[in-house]
Design a protein around this nucleic acid. Sequence first.
DNA 1: ATTAGCACTCGAGCTGGTTGAGTGCTAACA
DNA 2: TGTTAGCACTCAACCAGCTCGAGTGCTAAT
Lengths: 342, 342
Amino acid sequence: MAELNERSQKILEAIVKDYIASAEPVGSRAISRRHHFNLSPASVRNVMADLEEMGLLCSPHTSAGRIPTEKGFQYYIDSLLQIRDLSDKEKKQLRSSYRFSGMKMEDIMQEVGRILSGLSKYAGLVMVPKFATTVFRQIEFVRLSHGRLLVIYVSETGLVQNKVISATADIDQRELEKISNYLNRELNGLTINQVREKLKKEMQDEMTLYDQLRKRALSLSFAALQDEIEDQLYVTGTSLMLEQPEFSSPDQMRRLIQTFESKKILIDLLDRSQSAQGVQIFIGSEVDLKGCSLISANFSNRKGAIGALGVVGPMRMDYSQVVPIVDFTAQLVSRVLDREAE
Amino acid sequence: MAELNERSQKILEAIVKDYIASAEPVGSRAISRRHHFNLSPASVRNVMADLEEMGLLCSPHTSAGRIPTEKGFQYYIDSLLQIRDLSDKEKKQLRSSYRFSGMKMEDIMQEVGRILSGLSKYAGLVMVPKFATTVFRQIEFVRLSHGRLLVIYVSETGLVQNKVISATADIDQRELEKISNYLNRELNGLTINQVREKLKKEMQDEMTLYDQLRKRALSLSFAALQDEIEDQLYVTGTSLMLEQPEFSSPDQMRRLIQTFESKKILIDLLDRSQSAQGVQIFIGSEVDLKGCSLISANFSNRKGAIGALGVVGPMRMDYSQVVPIVDFTAQLVSRVLDREAE
DNA sequence: ATTAGCACTCGAGCTGGTTGAGTGCTAACA
DNA sequence: TGTTAGCACTCAACCAGCTCGAGTGCTAAT
């Protein structure tokens, strides 16, 4: 991106801010009046023309003002945006809105989403820790019917997953207990991925296994863990998005709701943000959310269980407001998870 | 409801059917032409005026045709609607779209919702069996951190619920195992409600209890089961509803989405339908869904686990089409649950 | 380099006219 | 007496034309 001189920057910033506030095209006159750089509308217009040339602004039609393009927002966020920190008072307030004691994982995540969307007035997303990266704690088998077993496994953080598998032979509950005892001893403290690795390796030595119990245990737990467990995503406050003027037309509403309904797009996005540290901002068509941005952050605990949360709002959302909220919430959740796992 | 003579009935039926097909006010001319009762538009008009008088029809404005009121739909459904049965071919087709083998409960429910909304082109609802009425199968405890326990309980049907409780004293995993063994033996085969009853009674004799283990077991499981477990609701295909012309205005869309988002209204409705047998139809403002109807049916298995499923569509939906689908799906799900629990 | 001035553009909103579907009423008819 | 043809009336939807005002781009003066 070519450098902008200071005046251009100031004007771009002013336009973006005004547009964020009003959701309407902003004109040269408004800029020269509302912001106190002593410039006539004409001069502002010249600068605006340059900015349009560079692809940072565009005008919906001849006699309307300018609105920032995606690229314009990008520039604003990269170079101009100053994130204010939350004041201690705000932090305290935020902290006190979260009351997680005695809640199980799912409920915590849902509650975080609710609060996130409540504070931001946009849609809140929370993706539950990817099970694969969490630490194994316990496995249990329940016999459902002939040959059909329910496997329940629990992570260090108290996340529960369950799955139905079918065993070749019928196994009674007593033996299942023995098997789970054995597995709990063997696999304790490993991440699910490590568990998978270990099982795979041991399975290869299967030929040499005379120990029936162990053999069964291996094949059962292998079946239980073999396919990827999909991430769980909690979406809250979609209807808040519909209040935004940019989604006021039926068509745009439909598109938006469809996007939120499929969840896949959102999961992909949050997955992408998983690798990075701190707050990330995805803008507009960079993601498959036309006209939207996603502000996301990861959370984790000492042991490494990783999830992501964020806020989806219109591209024109108030980043300086929402970014610190997302950031602090992620930290808060991380701390809670640590406490849970202690 | 006053009786209608045959001609009025025929005309009402024709109007409702045409309106269902077109979503537009239907006029006297159209009725007299499209349906072959040999009546002039003028005569039809007279009847229509009567029907309007009785509150079965209304006209959006003077020079538009008539549309059925809620009461009109009610009458149509109660007296005029003929539910055709599914042909064997359709049944077979429906049956084959459901593939549940090796799925766990949650996934089955989600899949049912998806198919339901796919077939009806409206929103599909599935409410997972109320846990309280299901049969207890197994309970497990996992120690999370000092004094915090994760309880997992499984129903006969393989439904898994979990919850965090805090114990007064720290209990190690070995003792937890003993406790769960004890409880599994004691409580096997009872419904959750029966379990609650039993625990309550035994707790009252607590004074006389010298058996530490038993004492602990009782208090733990009591804590685990004490509050109501909320029903889980799966909603699919909301965006399909947005395609319907009656929800084409931004305002109506917003209202609709808000309704679906809160879920509470829907749960209440399905709860209400729980008591009844067979397919039920709720219309419009009778429920809190303005302009919508809900077609619902219960499912259960021999052991009595009860849930409900249904389709929410515009009031003007094709009942003769959707009712049999809902009906048959409920039967299908019941049968699957039986198989699961066998 | 900045700015005042001005012609120009274009959407929003208002008006008035036309069209066509549909009604209610009345009088004639079987 | 029930049915119907005829007719005047109503009203939303559509369209064309109009004005208004916000905002632009360009040019010439400062």
